[in-house]
């Protein structure tokens, strides 16, 4: 159990998000039950007004969630000094069963909220609001995610035991018993590296082709998502040492994905690019389904293009920064293949 200002403010922020989420869900249920398409009744007007509230609330929830993810990692990093054996966020998150689960739920939540907001955005641009029911049903599905988020995070803080020694990135990522270590060890540096460049090439090429021909949307989304996932894998395996060596002069065995955040000017933009690329990539694919509804086709297609462009630029930016650090590393160390 650990309770300090950092933890308190994190929980306070989450409570705010949960309250917003619950309120939005409540409104959503109301809309779901009483929505009458084509009706001009006063009640319908009232529900239309409420739908603005819901989308604003979800927008807030998304913005706060991004902030909360950031703070969660930062807090975990800070808590490392209270946990024996932990030296960075990895150690804290790894110190009990809830840390990493909370992190992944938060990451998933960002994808989910963004998806909902896009569906909502497109739907509200068609005069017949064709997706009202599925949309608000989906909204209710976001609720468990939100509750899981706060549950896991609170459990994480309450389960921290300062005197139980945990293993940090250095050892855990080399041990087959740790799930992350297991994944990291089953992808030797060269394999992870090949996968990384392969998925990025596929994603960038597909997005580019999609922008040219407006085909391959599903493949683009799939490839962008793969690039996102392979980047996460890369940060746990071969990629993070380039940053850690160049920025902090750490030994190459140090494969911690969180270390780079200690240089906020590099770390935050880096992950921002990655998330922007991944999320907008997913949305490109999602928009393809929305295009099937005739009244949504045009606005969905329009948004899809902007998202594809965003995804292309973000993933390209992430790749460019990564390659730049690899080259600096090369200039410093004299080799790229340190593994």
């Amino acid at each position: 159990m650990i309770l300090n200002f950092w933890v308190l403010s994190q929980i306070l922020g989450l409570v705010v998000v949960v309250l917003l989420g619950l309120y939005a869900a409540l409104q959503g249920v109301r809309i779901l039950l009483r929505w009458q398409p084509g009706s001009a009744s006063e009640e319908q007007l009232e529900l239309e007004k409420r739908s603005y509230l819901v989308s604003t609330l979800v927008q807030y929830a998304l913005a706060f969630q991004v902030l909360s993810l950031l703070l969660f990692v930062v807090t975990a990093d800070y808590l490392a000094s209270f946990i024996s054996g932990a030296m960075c966020a990895f150690g804290s998150l790894n110190s009990n069963d809830y840390g990493f689960r909370a992190l992944w739920v938060k990451v998933a939540a960002i994808f989910a909220y963004s998806s909902w907001l896009m569906v909502n955005h497109i739907d509200s641009r068609a005069e017949d609001y064709p997706l009202v029911r599925p949309k608000y049903a989906l909204l209710l599905l976001l609720l468990p995610l939100l509750l899981a988020d706060i549950y896991l995070e609170v459990r994480f803080y309450t389960s921290i035991k300062a005197d139980v020694i945990t293993s940090c990135c250095g050892s855990a990522l080399r041990s087959l018993e740790n799930p992350y270590g297991f994944v990291a060890m089953s992808f030797p540096g060269e394999v992870a590296m090949a996968l990384f460049f392969l998925t990025f090439t596929a994603a960038l090429a597909a997005l580019f082709l999609h922008l040219r021909t407006s085909r391959y949307a599903l493949f683009s989304g799939f490839a962008a998502l793969s690039a996102f996932l392979s980047s996460l894998l890369a940060m746990f395996t071969f990629l993070s040492p380039y940053f850690n060596v160049v920025l902090f002069g750490l030994p190459t065995q140090h494969r911690c994905p969180f270390e780079v955040l200690r240089q906020p000017l590099v770390g935050y933009p880096l992950y921002a690019l990655l998330f922007a690329g991944g999320v907008s990539g997913l949305l490109v694919a999602l928009a393809e389904f929305l295009k099937k509804k005739p009244s949504l086709r045009e606005s969905a297609a329009q948004l899809q293009r902007s998202l594809a462009r965003l995804s292309l630029l973000s993933l390209g930016g992430f790749l460019a920064v990564s390659v730049a650090f690899m080259l600096i590393f090369y200039a410093m160390v004299g080799t790229l293949f340190y593994h």
């Binding site: 084509g38 009706s39 001009a40 007007l45 239309e48 007004k49 509200s124 005069e127 609001y129």
Partner: peptide
């Protein structure tokens, strides 16, 4: 316009 949602 009699059936149009408010925003439209």
């Amino acid at each position: 316009v009699s059936r149009l949602p408010e925003s439209f």
